[in-house]
Design a protein around this nucleic acid. Sequence first.
RNA 1: GCCGAAGUAGCUCAGUCGGCUAGAGCAGGCGUUUCAUACGCGCCGGGUCGGGGGUUCGAUUCCCUCCUUCGGCACCA
Length: 666
Amino acid sequence: MSRPFYVTTPIYYINDVPHLGTAYSTIAADVLRRYHAVRGERTFFLTGTDEHGLKIERVAKERGLAPKAFADEMSAPFRETWPKLACAPDDFIRTTDERHERWAAELWKRVAASGDLYEGTYEGWYCVGCEAYYTEKELAEGNVCATHKTPAERVREPSYFFKLSRYQDRLLELYRDHPSFVAPGSRLNEVKSFVAGGLSDLSVSRTTFSWGVPVPGDPRHVMYVWFDALANYWTVLQDDPERAALWPASLHVVGKDILRFHAIYWPAFLMSAGLPLPEQVFAHGFLTFGGQKMSKSLRNTVKPTALADAFGVDTLRYYLMRAIAFGQDGDFDVHDLVARYNADLGNALGNLLQRVLPFCHRVFEGLVPPDDAPPEEHEALLSGVPESLRMAGEAFATPAPHVALERIWSALRDANAYVDRSAPWDAAKKGDKPRLAGIVVRVLRLLESVSVALWPVMPGKADELRLQLGLGPVSPSVGLDLWPSGATALVAGAKLGEVAALFPRIDPDRQAELIASLGLAPPAPAAVAVAAPSAPAAPAASAPAPGAPQAAAADQPPSIAYDDFAKVDLRVGVVVAAERVPRKDKLLSLRVDLGEAEPRAIVAGLALSFAPEALVGKRVLVVANLEPRTFGKGLVSHGMILASGPSESLTLATVSGEPAAGSRVK
RNA sequence: GCCGAAGUAGCUCAGUCGGCUAGAGCAGGCGUUUCAUACGCGCCGGGUCGGGGGUUCGAUUCCCUCCUUCGGCACCA
């Protein structure tokens, strides 16, 4: 049997709440663990919280709480969040757990026993007001504390040091002999060059505060700077002999900001303690949210559970795993999420099921059709599917979940093409049941395979899919490889489940609602006048007020003569009718009263922001003399509506008061 | 400043160990279909493969240089 798969997330520091970044780490680890579980491997998934340190001690004091009470309060949201994101850690370690402190002390003793700890003096820039050390980088010019505006002092305190310098060569050997120890490869290079540049010894204890794991034999000191935090990956296993066999860890999933600690200090500590090293440290990238950096305030507003509530846990997991290349920085964009939901999940996957399952209920009494179907002329279209799924598995193992999902969707694209060519509806009309059965069964089996391959990322939806296929949930068990390999559990005559929409479409109105439900401050929209897509955008008619701050001066279009402006016939219009344009998500077809004999027909790209009925009766600004523009299917627009903002959150340009329809604007 | 990575279609990216018409997904356009959740399928991408120079019969792919962006350059959980 293969080795167990033991995966960890960082233990999260409790001076913050769970946010999208921590959710990303945790979901990624959960996905990888589920993949290995499906493969029949024994798995263990650990997360937890890091609760020691001066910051915690100080904030607890300010709040009049004992540090442990405060830590209990701050740790709880983490434990409560992960199950809501379909993450199922096997244990949750807290650095204040008695078991952790006991075994961290043991690790310390082992390191001490190899002679790698010595007493020295730590010297650093200390701000008396903050009661904390800072690096020179953190301090302002002249080593002034940013919060107190007072110069930091050069302070010395006794400290134990770890002889990190001794491990330089052994670490370099490690990177050379096991280049996959650090991933992605670009990170390995960083680590290597850092180590090659020379290592100095590491201060690993403090005497200036007491909220930490006491140093064995020297209770004036508490462990500091990662020693006890890193140890969690090991300490959590030690009380149980069966668990202890899980060491070394297969994979530490970490953010790139803490790579050094995991790729340099941690293996050095372990070498010193005479313990085996983890197989891989994987540094993933950082997320921006809608293009904005995750500032502290944004972290507090973008709650991963709110995203899960709005769009579904599985959708959130899918989006994070699919849209962001594992190991690279990425952007979390809710509009992109909805687009992927509709396109990938709804159209390609959900709809595929809807294309075949109803036949079973109509023609085959809700049973799996006979599977003795003869070879089918178009089935060559499916010949690449087994390979796609095999490669998906490989990608999960790499780990590259984004690639795995791409492979799975490649199989789904094949399946959709297959359904199209083989046209089961024709067979149904002709009453050719054997042929219909052959086609349907092939697609159902493919979906069965996909339900397993997808389960690591979308356990809930995968099981819902299986329910419709009449199958039980994916339930991994050690020693049983469930990865799709051609075998099927769909036997002819078995009862299929009820047909239900797996991923109901999110239309523009619903999208706006969901995004609003997140309670995010809307990003300042760029001032762009838009109407019909692709129509030449008229420069916003906003001459900057004299003396007003000139925002984005660099983006100012060149100035125009008054005569040029006078060519534009701007009118006040009243919308008298509005309806969606079939097959054009962004377009609304409007009738606008411009005081002319007939209302104008105007097509405008407003549909992502406005329901048609919400526009009727509105006064709008119209470019009345724009060349007519066609939108296909005989749809012609005789004008352009002015609005500002991205197409999903437009604001209409309008007028105060109620000027008559057709009034000139200038 | 030093070290490293990257700059390829509107967007996100893949790829080329030098050589057929440079690819995918999404978005957009055209067409088609109606079994299904207005969904699927087919076709459509005049991209100086960041700029310049060099090597070569031939470079997007190798070398040099410049520009831009990002990351690392130790105690940030």
